[in-house]
Design a protein around this nucleic acid. Structure first.
Length: 297
DNA sequence: CGGGTTTGACCAGCGC
DNA sequence: GCGCTGGTCAAACCCG
């Protein structure tokens, strides 16, 4: 976990526009797209980001070697910001059904105190964003309570731990700064909101929502919360890497935990829902990244 | 006073 | 087995 942000050689050819998805053990039982793992299911989760400003991508690096449980990729350019990469962590061999996640969370918490059960601690699917921002704690529409802070071994910046304050909502997030680029905030979400955002009512599809925004929701079936930017992000797109299959080949290396499966699902779903030819060169990014950005590269 | 933050301690998992 | 590290707890503290 410590080289999360520190693998600079890796970063050199990494994907600037990435989203870290981390599922612990769902494997091919994972019936949902990754975004569903985060926000509340469908109606409840507001589109908290302006897709024109911040765009998630599901792509990970093909050469990605998961040396540490979580591997983050930083933008290749200082101007680029945001988001993601895939990671896997806390591998459980036993598959976990998403439906059970709430229960799991309850039990995992209890597991801490009444020492040692025979079960390994089970983790929620995780999912991280890299956001270029001055502020550590990005507003994402939910209310969070900080419950811990930890200095990380290979980073001068501490990691903060937050829990959603919603009752019976066990979503957690971790916020840390990239020490390779302090302007980048890495936010890792874990769990699924069980309630709508208390801060931001979901607007209708009309108005300010961009097509790409809609595309994301169509693709995922649910919106998820991406921290709203306080600083203007820039998106950077690597055409070269995008030519690869945005999910299959790049995500398979994550192996064990079914990321590839859910990603594949997502991809399929995308094809089904968006109704246009989506399988072109740019893969997912094509319809979530503004076209002018795609041309930049 | 209620809710959030800080911070030291504790625990579990992992690697050596 | 031991030490290291990440993750969490919970008491103390802060603030509106």
């Amino acid at each position: 976990m410590e080289d999360v942000l520190g693998n600079s050689s890796f970063l050199a050819n990494s994907f600037p526009l990435q989203m870290i998805y981390d599922t612990s053990s769902e494997g091919d039982k994972f019936p949902l797209g990754f975004t569903e793992l985060l926000g509340t299911q469908d109606f409840t989760s507001p589109p908290l980001f302006d897709i024109g400003q911040q765009v998630p991508s599901l792509v990970t690096d093909p050469p990605m070697k998961i040396e540490s449980p979580e591997t983050f990729h930083l933008p290749a350019t200082p101007n680029s910001s945001s988001i993601s990469s895939a990671s896997s962590e806390a591998v459980n061999d036993e598959p976990v059904k998403v439906d059970d996640h709430e229960e799991d969370q309850q039990t995992t918490k209890k597991q801490l105190k009444p020492k040692k059960t025979n079960q390994k601690r089970q983790r929620e699917p995780r999912f991280a964003f890299m956001t270029k921002s001055e502020v550590d704690h990005l507003e994402d529409g939910y209310r969070w309570r900080k419950y811990g802070q930890k200095a990380l071994k290979n980073s001068p910046f501490p990691r903060s731990y937050y829990r959603c304050t919603g009752t019976s909502c066990n979503v957690k997030k971790r916020v840390e700064r990239s020490f390779t680029d302090p302007s980048i905030v890495v936010t890792t979400y874990e769990g699924q909101h069980t309630h709508p955002s208390p801060l931001m009512p979901r607007p209708s599809l009309s108005g300010s929502r961009l097509n790409s925004d809609i595309a994301i929701e169509a693709a995922t079936g649910a919106a998820f919360s991406i921290p709203m930017q306080k600083a203007q992000p820039h998106y950077y797109y690597h055409h070269q890497q995008q030519q690869q299959h945005p999910f299959g080949s790049t995500l398979y290396p994550l192996g064990h935990n079914g990321f590839s499966t859910s990603a594949g699902f997502l991809h399929e779903r995308r094809l089904c829902t968006s109704g246009q030819s989506l399988l072109k060169d740019h893969g997912l990014l094509q319809d979530i990244v503004p076209s002018h950005m795609l041309k930049e590269e």
